[in-house]
Nucleic acid binder design. Structure first.
Length: 402
RNA sequence: GGGGAGGUUCCAGAGCGGUCAAAUGGAACGGGCUGUAAACCCGUUGGCGUUGCCUUCGGUGGUUCAAAUCCAUCCCUCCCCA
């Protein structure tokens, strides 16, 4: 692949690439360049949203470039104010350490460890003395700092901005100087920080880094950005089953966005699918199945993906009861005259948290016993072996007498 | 330091003496429709072997036949001015 083609591939699906020509020049000159990606070891669980940037880094690695995974163990003590309207609470050293470890493990599901250099910014930041900090700060002005959306908003709505928070972008910029980064990549929410890195490198007599921003991925609800706290995320350590199921439940308008940002399927092939969909040749469900399979295969391999696909078809399309299901053993001491009251069983099997909830489920027609809908809340069930209790459309449990 | 607002059920947020297990919205759950979805429609959302009873509206005490609602006090949050 020639250099120009490399740049085109890198550029795919990015939001910003500043400056494209500079990127080309550096690749031509060096062959292999240093791509910086900084992570905040605050929440260790990586989800598909984070994977967008990681996959782009992987793309760099596949082209023979080096990724510098920078763990912001020092900056975590400040907390990135990006997109926040509050100060973050600083983490303890132990938490940071533990998070960094988990992060690395998860990131290497995507990145190639051989082509990744892991560094910690405490290495140089903890050695900064006050005069060096002052020098760093003198290269930037308050007014420019306040241009940043989140600071601006906080400033005008009178939310407190810790003075130390101004140092977050400065420290991040200093990291680029320390690393002599050729490229820095991040989500679009990082644009300000990334640009500042460019400017500070110039102030320190270095060639300014190329910056790349990647889109922020919407979560499974299709509206909000994917995040753990909103509960609309798909974690990369989730089981193949969860992952497949969640992917199948994303809204249709997200299918191609996910294809572009989460798979390495070529743009050309994605466009073919889009076309086939709009012409009605392909059903959206089929394309979504493809997507789910792609992603599950990436993380767990083809056999897992095939298994989940089959299971899914059986469960949802054919409405069959899955072959393997969790079971619950009823202790004989719970039985009266060899029978158990349905309400009690629902509570024991954790299908309902209270008797009232169990009654509600039955009243609403959500409970089935061996496939037959239960209507009577007073029902007493006799348990010989292997009955199946179903609540809602998807939860099944085999009930066994102990 | 001075002034003001407020803490209600999962969340947001009404209620301001009885008709309140508490409006409305979000979320969740169940049913329907479907492609498994989304959207949409209907229903449910304190507990109890449940036509009735019991416990909830920041904590504690009080007024009253009756308190989420009134009073006192304590705790906590937020805003404005300095």
């Amino acid at each position: 692949m020639n250099f120009r083609e490399q740049v085109c591939l890198i550029k795919e699906n990015t939001v910003d690439l500043i400056q494209e020509e500079e990127l080309l020049r550096r690749i031509e000159k060096k062959g292999s360049i240093r791509v910086k990606f900084g992570v905040d070891p605050t929440s260790p669980d990586i989800h598909l949203g984070h994977s967008v940037v990681l996959l782009k880094l992987r793309c760099f690695q596949d082209l023979g470039h080096k990724v510098v995974l920078l763990i912001g163990d020092f900056t975590a003590k400040v907390g990135d104010p990006s997109g926040r309207n509050k100060m973050r609470k600083p983490l303890s050293t132990e938490e940071i350490k533990a998070n960094a470890k988990t992060y690395k493990e998860q990131a290497f599901k995507i990145l190639s460890p051989e082509k990744t250099e892991v560094l910690y910014n405490s290495t140089w930041l903890s050695k900064m003395n006050f005069s060096r900090v002052l020098k760093l700060a003198s290269h930037y002005t308050v007014a420019r700092m306040l241009e940043r959306d989140d600071f601006n908003e906080r400033y005008h709505s009178k939310y407190p901005i810790g003075l130390h928070e101004f140092f977050y972008p400065l420290m991040q910029a200093y990291d680029s100087i320390a690393l002599k980064a050729d490229v820095e990549i991040g989500g679009t929410d990082q644009k300000f920080n990334l640009l500042l890195g460019r400017q500070m490198q110039k102030s320190y007599g270095q060639a300014p880094q190329v910056i790349i921003t990647m889109p922020i991925l919407e979560g499974t609800d299709g509206v909000e950005k994917m995040s753990k706290s909103l509960g609309n995320y798909i974690g990369i350590t989730e089981s193949p089953r969860e992952m497949y199921g969640k992917l199948m439940s994303i809204p249709d308008n997200l299918i191609f966005r996910y294809f572009r940002l989460l798979t390495s399927l070529s743009e050309e092939k994605i466009q073919k699918k889009e076309e086939a969909l709009s012409k009605g040749i392909l059903h959206p469900k089929e394309i979504k199945k493809d997507l789910a399979k792609w992603i599950v295969t990436f993380y767990y391999g083809a056999s897992s993906a095939n298994m989940e696909e089959k299971r899914f078809e059986n469960l949802f399309k054919k409405r069959k009861i899955p072959e393997e299901l969790p079971s619950y053993c009823v202790h004989s001491c719970e039985l009266k005259n060899d029978k158990i009251w349905i309400i009690k069983l629902l509570k024991l099997a954790h299908f309902a948290r209270s008797g009232s909830e169990a009654r509600r489920l039955i009243a609403q027609g959500g409970v089935k016993w061996d496939g037959k809908r239960i209507k009577d809340v007073e029902l007493e069930l006799s348990l010989d072996n292997g009955h199946i209790l179903q609540v809602g459309k998807r939860s099944f449990m085999k009930i066994i007498k102990l």
